[in-house]
């Protein structure tokens, strides 16, 4: 059974009052759940949030499954998100992703054996002048190359 930490619950309470309508608290609360739940939102967590907020399960589930930044299964400690949209794909983003997956021995969306990494292709990150752009958790990395990726991975413990 998943349960938010006291701070997490406090945040949900605050977000419920922060906007004009309590439903606006769903997205910030799901972010908090994801942070406390190994990078993903489980069905139990949806149950929990529904109970905390009084918002119907199906509604929370609709929101959860609509937005791509919420993960529906566990992710590694570092979620490496490679933009493969138009400009980044011009600069070998797709090859970079394939290369990275091969090095880590995982397919997209999987967690590496040591639990450190998940690799995903994502859509435009809004960093097209630095293509290819990669986001690791909340941090952007610009002009990535296979070599820079190797260094980055070795630095992420």
């Amino acid at each position: 059974m998943f349960e938010l930490s006291p701070e997490g619950k406090e945040l949900v309470k605050k977000e419920l009052a922060r906007y004009e309508d309590k439903y606006s608290a769903i997205i910030p609360s799901l972010y908090q759940i994801q942070k406390e739940n190994e990078g993903w939102v489980s069905p139990e967590a949806v149950d929990h949030l529904s109970e905390l907020t009084g918002i119907p399960h199906s509604h929370i589930n609709e929101v959860l499954k609509f937005y791509t930044m919420f993960n529906l299964k566990p992710t590694g400690k570092y979620h490496i998100q490679v933009c493969c949209n138009i400009t980044c794909s011009m600069f070998q983003a797709r090859e970079l992703t394939d290369d990275l997956c091969q090095k880590l021995g995982i397919k997209e969306g999987e967690v590496s054996e040591d639990g450190r990494f998940t690799v995903s292709r994502v859509e435009c990150l809004g960093s097209c002048d630095n293509a290819p752009a990669v986001q690791v958790n909340e941090t952007y990395h610009d002009n990535m190359t296979p070599e820079k990726m190797d260094t980055l991975i070795s630095e992420l413990k």
């Binding site: 906007y19 309508d21 309590k22 439903y23 606006s24 608290a25 769903i26 997205i27 799901l30 972010y31 918002i55 929101v63 609509f66 937005y67 791509t68 930044m69 919420f70 994502v122 859509e123 435009c124």
Partner: peptide, 18 residues
């Protein structure tokens, strides 16, 4: 939270409405 369509103004309003 990751949805291009929220750039459409009424999509954005829906999103802000939770």
């Amino acid at each position: 939270a990751g949805a291009y369509i929220c750039g459409e103004e009424t999509g954005m309003i829906s999103s802000l409405e939770g």
